[in-house]
Simulated scan of single mutants.
Amino acid sequence: MAHPLDHLPIQRMNGAGNEILVLDLRGSDHELAPQEARAIANAPGLRFDQLMALYRPRRPGDDAFMRIYNVDGSLSAACGNGTRCVAYVLAREGKDALHLETDAGVIETQRRADTAFTVDMGRPRLDWRQIPLAHAVEDTRKVALDPPVAGAPAHFSAVSMGNPHAVFFVDDAAKIDLETLGPRIEYHPLFPERVNVSFAQMFAQGDILLRVWERGTGATRACGSAACATLVAAARAGLGDRAARLRLPGGELTIDWRADDHVLMTGPVEFEFETTLDPQIFRDLAA
């Protein structure tokens, strides 16, 4: 029996090095299941950091409803780099400005150039309940990592950009053992929904180097929501201004925390290829 996703087109892009797939399901009634996302990730050439699934808009005035899948099939409420890739896809339909509904709310995008887009990531959430943390803390600008993790800094800044982030400010981000510390902190009992883990090194004013372990994905070349969370954390800690260039292994992002409390992220998109989903991908899944 044919699977609903057999032979559907899927597009591979990257946003500042973040490997993104965009699957347009606006013409289908099928909703992507976690096991289907994992199957796609295991297909040759289709492993991703995030998969952006587009559905028909649920409200008047929106361009699409969007769900974001990590490589392990779990859902993420926010992905700035992936959202820019979606903006690129829909820009080819003549839409330079978008309203995209997600499980975390509406995200707005604006085309800046042929392959550059700005995403309004909304307001950061700074209360311990919103992030969330497992227990109350007096100040989310400086939270003790308790119990401690060997090799990790003792404190971090907690921010939610629709998904939870722990930002550690370090003297030398290159020396961080990301593959070891990332998963230990992601699954730390302090984070009931797990957490994205960032190690940030401050340079001159407005210049931040960032390495990220992404919840449900692992070490990644870029993470837009982590870049936003890091800028917010640095500004709250008095380490930098409310606008900066974030340098990640895959490229650069410009983050601006505006006076209206919205965080804007601007960066590039690169189209890599389009293919169709091979029915063999889903042969072990029930239709």
Score class of each variant (00 low, 15 high):
L246A: 08
A237P: 02
R211N: 07
T254C: 11
G250S: 13
A219Y: 04
I255D: 05
G251R: 05
L264A: 08
L246T: 10
R258Q: 15
R247Q: 14
R258G: 03
R245F: 08
R221I: 10
A226P: 01
G240R: 00
R247C: 12
R215H: 07
R242Q: 11
D260L: 11
A243E: 14
R242I: 11
A235N: 09
A229V: 13
L264F: 13
D241C: 01
P249A: 15
A219V: 13
A234T: 01
T254R: 13
V212M: 08
A222W: 05
G250W: 04
V212N: 00
W257H: 04
H262W: 06
R247H: 15
E252K: 07
L231S: 00
R215F: 07
V263P: 03
D241E: 15
T220D: 06
G250E: 07
C223W: 02
R236H: 13
C228R: 01
G240K: 01
G224C: 10
V263H: 03
W213L: 06
D256C: 13
S225E: 04
L239E: 05
A227R: 02
A259D: 15
L239F: 03
C223F: 04
A259E: 15
G250D: 08
V212Y: 00
A259Q: 13
H262C: 15
T220S: 01
D256N: 13
T266Y: 05
L239K: 05
L248D: 03
G218I: 00
C228A: 14
R236A: 12
E214H: 04
T254K: 07
A234D: 01
C228Q: 02
G218Y: 01
R221S: 13
A222I: 08
T266S: 15
V212F: 08
L210R: 04
R236F: 13
R221W: 12
L210H: 01
I255N: 03
A259T: 14
R245L: 14
S225Y: 03
T217C: 10
V232I: 10
R221C: 14
D260S: 12
R258D: 04
R247P: 05
A227F: 09
L248M: 15
